[in-house]
Structure formats: structure tokens, C-alpha cells
Design a binder for these strands. Structure first.
Lengths: 153, 153
DNA sequence: GGACTTACTGATAACGATTCCCATTATGTG
DNA sequence: CACATAATGGGAATCGTTATCAGTAAGTCC
């Protein structure tokens, strides 16, 4: 509580109220665990696994169960409020899906597993063109570049 | 044995001898299980999970153990001979990596899980541009478009 | 061609991430 | 404030994948 006077406000700060409202509209109740998980998700800059989120919450004294984290992520994912990211290590990671459609993609280090974000308009445009010509009704996309991060080189 | 006189030969048919040679060069021995798995991989048109490969082999009367499938896939993946594909269901799928660099990407149906392949030169070009400007030394990339397949609509 | 080193193999146990189940708690409505 | 029921935490169960181990076989060196 009380970090609202940060200097730099991202457009992404709109996610928490957006998600909260969407959940309320869907007729769900707001328990303590879910609220804490939502806040934790809103605070992260890139993707995080269920266990990472759970650990972070536990470290702040919370007694939230791991099941609640998985349940909440599943709920949010089903509603399109979080995006699932697979980095290839068998662990699912999640990050907030911003209402405006702005999003990023990931660079994954094949040596240390580090994940970094990037964005590229030309790439988005190319994806958009592909989506228009294929048989599928495309609703989203994931892109991961694999390689060696600067720290590992 | 004896399906070598198929009518349409793809460029991709070069994979089996390529992989076999690479393995031999690496000093590995060629056991029956691994050969069968290589042949099965060479025959598939898109990605397949370890369990799918195992089931297909068992169905043809083979007694190959699931461990050999995982072991072989791990070996091939480490040598860059197969590409790992994550479709978001927590199951790793693999497909041959063709020596010429030609490859495709995937359309994943979020309703039924079906996976289809597509290729797009403009997209590859966009990826290439991104790879040049980021900090990572990019060695590969994965792209998945999610949506509803024509059968599910 | 036969002995030998050691990679390969299949079965099974172990493991880790995720899901399921259930008794308890707590939300929000009337 | 009582009530119906969603939400919760703990732990068991599940599932994909990996590690272990003893038996088998590939390739090598005479």
C-alpha cells in the first residue's frame, strides 16, 4: 500500500483496475488471495511463473497457497487477462495482457534461461499480414527469439 | 522397410541421411531404437510429442521404451537436429531441423489443439531485422499464431 | 572371427510442475 | 444478520519428463 506516487507511470498501470473490473463483471468475488496475486502481476515488468509469484507473495508474509496462484492464473488466462509465455523449459510463465493491445515478445537465453522483452512494429505488421491470409481466425501470437544473452557471452 | 519409391520427394528428405551422418560424426553408435525414432521423425510432416512418436512406433509392433524416445530427442535437440515446439499445452513437440535452414511456423487452435504449419518470407525478414538490432546473439526463433481453426468454427 | 570396451536400450523409480479434491473460510446479497 | 456459495489452503493425485540400473549389442582391436 502506498506506492502510487511513483515518478514514471506506464500505460500498463491501467491493467489492475481493468482486470479487477473485468472479474467483477464476470460475477466473481474478490478474495484476499486473488487480490494479492493481481497486485503482484500488475507489478511485474515481464513474465513470471506460478511458483515465482507464489514465492514472492510468501516472502512478504502472505500465507497464500500455491493452488490459489494456479487457479487465479487459469481464470485470468481463460478471460484473456494474462498471456501465457513458454520459454522452452517446461515451466509456464504469465504476464498481464494490456487492454490497449500493446504487447512485447521475448528473447530467451538458451544458456542461462534469462528472459528479456522486445517490441518491433515491422514484426507486428508482418504478423498481421500473415494472420489475414491463413485459414485460422487468428486471435493472438507469440514470438520467441532464442540465443545467447550478453551476460553469457 | 521399402517405401523408398514414393512419388513426391521433398527437399526435406535430405534430413534422415544428414542427421545419421551428423550422429556418426559425433561418435555415437546406431542402435535399433534410435534408427527407428529417426525414421519416424523423418516421416512426420509437422511436430510430434515424445509420446505420440512412442505410440506410433509401438503400433507398428516395436518394443521401444519411452525413455529411448526422450533420450533420442534430447540428443538430437542438443545437436540442433530437431526443433522444439511449445504449443502452450505443457507438452513439448519436436520436428526435424532441415540443414538448409528452411523452416515453418505454427498455427495453434486454442479450441481443439490442432497444429498447422505456415511459412512467410516477409515475416522471416522482419525477424532477421530484429535479430540484428538486439543485444542477444540470436540463434533461432519460434512463432506461434493462436486462433480458431476452420474445423472448429 | 572372437574378445572386449562401452554406448545403447527398456523397465521402472524418481522428480517437478500442475491439477484435483475437500473441508473450512469469507464474500456479498437479500 | 443469515444464508448460499465462491474462494481458499493443504495435501493427494496426475502427468510429462528425467534419472537410475542391469542387460544387450555396436564397433574396435587383435
Amino acid at each position: 500500500m502506498a506506492e502510487r506516487d511513483h515518478a514514471h507511470q506506464h500505460a500498463t498501470d491501467a491493467w489492475l483496475p481493468h482486470a479487477t473490473l473485468a472479474l467483477r463483471s464476470a460475477g466473481t468475488r474478490s478474495g484476499g488471495a486473488r487480490s494479492a496475486i493481481l497486485a503482484e502481476l500488475a507489478a511485474q515488468t515481464c513474465c513470471a511463473s506460478a511458483q515465482e509469484i507464489h514465492t514472492r507473495l510468501r516472502d512478504t508474509g502472505s500465507t497464500i497457497g500455491i493452488a490459489s496462484v494456479y487457479r487465479t492464473l487459469e481464470l485470468l488466462h481463460g478471460m484473456g487477462l494474462v498471456t501465457r509465455v513458454d520459454t522452452g523449459d517446461g515451466v509456464a510463465r504469465f504476464e498481464p495482457t494490456h487492454p490497449g493491445g500493446e504487447h512485447h515478445h521475448h528473447l530467451v537465453c538458451t544458456r542461462c534461461g534469462a528472459v528479456e522483452a522486445f517490441h518491433d512494429d515491422a514484426l507486428e505488421e508482418a504478423i498481421h499480414r500473415v494472420a489475414e491470409r491463413v485459414e485460422f481466425e487468428v486471435t493472438g501470437h507469440d514470438i520467441a527469439l532464442r540465443g545467447i544473452c550478453s551476460a553469457c557471452r
